[in-house]
Simulated scan of single mutants.
Amino acid sequence: MNETEHLSRGKTALITGASGGIGYELAKLFAHDGYNLILVARSAEKLLQIAEEFTAKFGIKVEIIVKDLAIPTAPTEIFTKLQQAGIKVDVLVNNAGFGSYGFFHETDLTNELEMLQVNVVGLTHLTKLFLQDMVQQGSGKILNVSSGAAFQPGPLMAVYFATKAYVLSFSEAIANELEGTGVTVTALCPGPTVSGFQKKAAMEESKLVTSQKSMDAETVAKIGYRGFMSNQRVVIPGIKNKLLAEAVRFTPRNLVVKISRSINSKS
């Protein structure tokens, strides 16, 4: 048993969007280190499979909560259920999120309002609910999954890029507020990652996807997990992604937007 596993035994991590991609890989890392898990996603079948897998392999407790975070009442329902069950959450991972692709005046409004609910409102709501208890207890950790998209506007994915900019800004701000409380906040900002995200966002033909090799979800999760456990405020997996995020600061804004448009365009 390593030191991290020893310290985490008996602690509980809640992970949203845990049925696949980065969320699943993060859940596996927490399970490996002995955390009990609360897994949240829309697919009951996938969550049950993961719960069985992790219980057998890691000997931990796994609770599943089938919720769609596009529904505004979902965060309160999750929090209330755990309060009633007497389950204390030591780690909150806000991973759930999705994107959409196309010109804003042509894309579906309902889909984008749901995106705002999941990527921004639901994340903020869950953070508010669980953070208050963490501060009162003097300990806790929150990981908010943002994106490399957070560092610049994104024509053809205007709403998605804006939501991730919010997540990064929000996370850095409350991390500063929480200094000295025993609670830490980390924003994970991965670049393009192999997952179901691109297909759901209907952006498989964009140059962002086709012109470069994407990192795999397991690698992103491992880098994010290490940074999170060492209390880094912002984690950007991959040297190339770090350089791109830094370069935006020194590039004229109109040029940044033009480059972003070019990268997001179809091949």
Rank of each mutant, 00 (worst) to 15 (best):
T4L: 03
S8C: 11
S8Y: 13
T12G: 00
T16M: 06
T16S: 11
S19K: 10
G20F: 00
G20W: 00
G23L: 02
G23C: 06
A27N: 13
D33W: 12
G34K: 13
L37H: 01
L39Q: 13
K46M: 14
Q49M: 12
I50R: 06
F54S: 10
A56Q: 05
I60F: 05
I65A: 04
V66D: 01
T73W: 03
T76W: 04
E77P: 07
T80M: 02
K81S: 10
L82F: 04
V93T: 07
N95S: 08
N95P: 09
A96N: 14
A96M: 12
F103R: 15
F104Y: 10
M115I: 00
L116Q: 04
Q117D: 13
N119Q: 01
V120I: 15
L126W: 14
L131Y: 03
Q136S: 04
Q136D: 02
S139Q: 14
G140T: 05
G140Q: 07
N144G: 01
A149C: 12
M157F: 00
V159R: 14
A162H: 09
T163K: 02
T163V: 12
Y166H: 10
Y166D: 05
S169N: 09
A175M: 02
E177G: 08
L178D: 12
L178E: 13
V183H: 05
T186M: 07
A187D: 08
C189R: 00
E205T: 05
Q212E: 14
T219P: 09
V220D: 08
A221Y: 03
I223M: 15
I223C: 10
G224I: 13
Y225I: 11
N231V: 09
N231Y: 10
Q232I: 00
R233H: 09
V234P: 06
V235R: 08
V235T: 09
P237I: 08
P237H: 10
K242P: 11
L244R: 11
R249H: 03
F250P: 10
P252F: 03
N254R: 01
V256M: 11
V257C: 02
K258W: 09
S260W: 04
I263F: 15
K266V: 14
S267G: 05
